[in-house]
Design a protein around this nucleic acid. Structure first.
Length: 557
RNA sequence: GCGCCCGUAGCUCAGCUGGAUAGAGCGUCGGACUUCGAAUCCGCAGGCCGCAGGUUCGAAUCCUGCCGGGCGUACCA
């Protein structure tokens, strides 16, 4: 049973195509025919700009065109109560009220699968996100990236893409040496050896904790070992344990990556060298001042970039090129990178890189996540990684909760900076948008609980008669429920997870309003049955949408 | 200097890749619980969509130039 929007879209498209063909016009590609829900209910349940868009190719008055389109919409009387031509040439469609019930039956039939669809055709996507250096705990900025990447992947999966979530571990290079040495020094310090701790080492308290841990396990075994011999142990220990902590923090935040990819493994397998050779063969490498340069300007970058320094060492960018080459060799159709916006300067060169390696620019999509300003009571909280003064993601999750933190991160466009005030997040807990949504779910569960206690039937093998659903709020609810798949699809195509929380808010707001005006239980039996059936559909959609967001849908709160 | 992002209600932000009279939450003020959960609902107030041009039937949305804020501009990782 096709949904309202689909049926209407289909009908409209056929009419437009017929009209174009009859006018002797070949298929126009870039016709922006849209079917939207007007802001004002007087403008119909749906409206289209089709006639206005056709003004140019047809060279006719939009209102005339509108009438021609309507005349060509076959079978419209089954679905439409009326059609109007309005304003500059909008066509406003008024759906027969009883048709909306199809949406509710459809939701019951699909249940958990309502909202799932096949846009991707099984195409393989990879979403790489967080990828924080394993040199310290995750902070709140990582949390935002984690929420966005995780949910984006969920949404894409819901749309029929085959998606892997990946974390790139920067476990190579000088920083790891520095990390190991930081731990080594803290270790000695914990054993009472006087040390001089350099400014450019990792100063955070977590290193002291880790050092105490080593002392607990190893005692003074490395106290008299020469630094050169001791360092490999400390480097590995620090890297492993910090990464482990990151994994646990992500877990507590509801994020689980499918693949943890080591940068070091690229070096070990010689892939960095191979990548440079591949670029050389493609003619994009030249030498200058003793270094090897990648000609990224050939693809619109501002300047060329060094891949091998004069001292013979490869740059981080070279490893990143190898990494992306590797991604595509793993047969991903599209690769999505979620980066902090402070890395935006790297977009052009990375795009150049994959193009030089033979991929289309559109095969790599980079989402820039703006920074998070952490506040406490309106005042900025100092965030310095070097000095070790920062609030970790874990602390935030412990303080405000996983659900609230995720929801706050997701209820903003990623390219908009975000103020995250801990005090406000806690103080507001009752007015927090996430509780607003969760409350609706709990409320619905409660209604069903009461219904069961009263012996009112509330599970159906056959849909009840839905004709009692005539209240304006009921029609509005059904209309909104019917839009859910469309919202998920748009969210996937635009890579914009924030649309889901906004939709949820709208749906839930409508439900709360409805609930306050009407009783579900205790009405005449047919009415109660129809309303319960609708309520169950609302609950399903809330639960499905929250599921995409990785936010719990509690039955009680 | 150059590049990217952002300027929408007092505050925080949406505005669906050009549509009709620009929305929501918070905050202010005033209302609604003997009845399914008041963590809710209803109402009032609040705007030259940063400024100025341009594109067209139509601009918060697209283009150009300014103003203001953030970030970035390594043979660092």
């Amino acid at each position: 049973m096709a949904l309202i929007r689909e049926r209407l879209t289909h009908m409209l498209q056929r009419a437009v195509q017929d009209l174009l063909r009859d006018s002797g016009i070949s298929n126009e590609q870039d016709l922006r025919v849209e079917l939207e829900i007007p802001k004002i209910s007087d403008h119909g349940d749906y409206a289209t700009n089709a006639a206005m868009v056709l003004t140019k190719p047809l060279r006719r008055n939009p209102r005339e065109i509108a009438q021609a389109i309507i005349d060509r919409m076959e079978g419209r009387h089954e679905l439409l109560a009326s059609v109007e031509i309005a304003g500059p040439g909008f066509i406003n469609f008024f759906i027969r009220p009883e048709a909306w019930a199809d949406v509710v039956r459809d939701i019951h039939a699909k249940a958990d699968a309502y909202g799932l669809q096949d846009l991707g055709g099984g195409k393989r996507f990879q979403v790489e996100f967080v990828s924080a250096n394993p040199t310290g705990p995750l902070h709140i900025g990582h949390g935002r990236g984690a929420a966005i990447g995780d949910v984006l992947a969920n949404i894409l999966r819901a749309c029929g893409y085959q998606v892997d979530k990946e974390y790139y571990i920067n476990d190579a290079g000088k920083q790891m040496q520095t990390l190991g040495r930081s731990l080594y020094l803290r270790y000695l310090e914990a054993l009472g050896v006087p040390i001089d701790f350099p400014d450019d080492h990792y100063r955070g308290d977590y290193m002291k904790d880790l050092a105490r841990e080593v002392v607990g396990q190893m005692g003074d075994r490395y106290k008299d070992t020469p630094e050169d011999e001791a360092l490999p142990f400390f480097t590995k220990y620090a890297g492993d344990h910090i990464l482990d902590g990151i994994r646990q923090d992500l877990e507590a935040f509801g994020v689980r990556h499918d693949v943890w990819f080591s940068e070091q493994s690229l070096h070990d397998a010689g892939e960095v060298q191979k990548t440079i050779e591949a670029l050389e063969q493609a003619g994009y490498i030249y030498e200058e001042d003793g270094a090897k340069w990648f000609r990224s300007t050939a693809f619109g970058d501002e300047k060329d970039r060094v891949v091998v320094r004069a001292n013979g060492l490869t740059t981080y960018f070279a490893a990143d090129l190898a990494y992306h080459k590797n991604k595509f060799e793993r047969d991903y159709d599209t690769v999505i990178d979620v980066w902090g916006a402070d890395h935006h300067g790297y977009v052009a060169r990375m795009s150049a890189g994959i193009q030089a390696l033979g991929r289309k620019a559109s095969d790599l999509r980079i989402i820039l996540v703006q920074l998070v300003n952490l506040l406490r009571g309106g005042k900025p909280v100092a965030m310095s990684t070097r000095a070790g003064e920062f609030v970790t993601l874990r602390e935030v999750v412990d303080e405000v909760g996983k659900d609230a933190a995720r929801f706050i991160f997701l209820t903003r466009r990623s390219d908009s900076p975000l103020d995250f005030d801990l005090e406000v997040a806690k103080m507001q807990s009752n007015d927090n948008p996430v509780y607003y949504v969760q409350y609706a779910h709990a409320r619905l569960c409660s209604v069903f609980q009461v219904a069961r206690e009263k012996g009112v039937p509330c599970s159906w093998s056959v849909p009840p008669d839905l004709s009692p659903l005539t209240h304006p709020k009921e029609l509005e609810l059904m209309k909104l429920l019917g839009e859910y798949p469309q919202v998920v699809a748009a969210s996937a195509l635009q890579l914009e997870p924030h649309r889901i929380p906004y939709y949820l808010n709208e749906l839930v707001s409508c439900f709360h309003s409805y609930y306050n005006q009407n009783r579900i239980l205790g009405e005449e039996e047919a009415t109660t049955q129809a309303r319960l059936y609708l309520a169950a559909a609302v609950r399903t959609v809330i639960r499905n949408a929250l599921g995409l967001l990785g936010v719990d849908a509690p039955e009680k709160m």
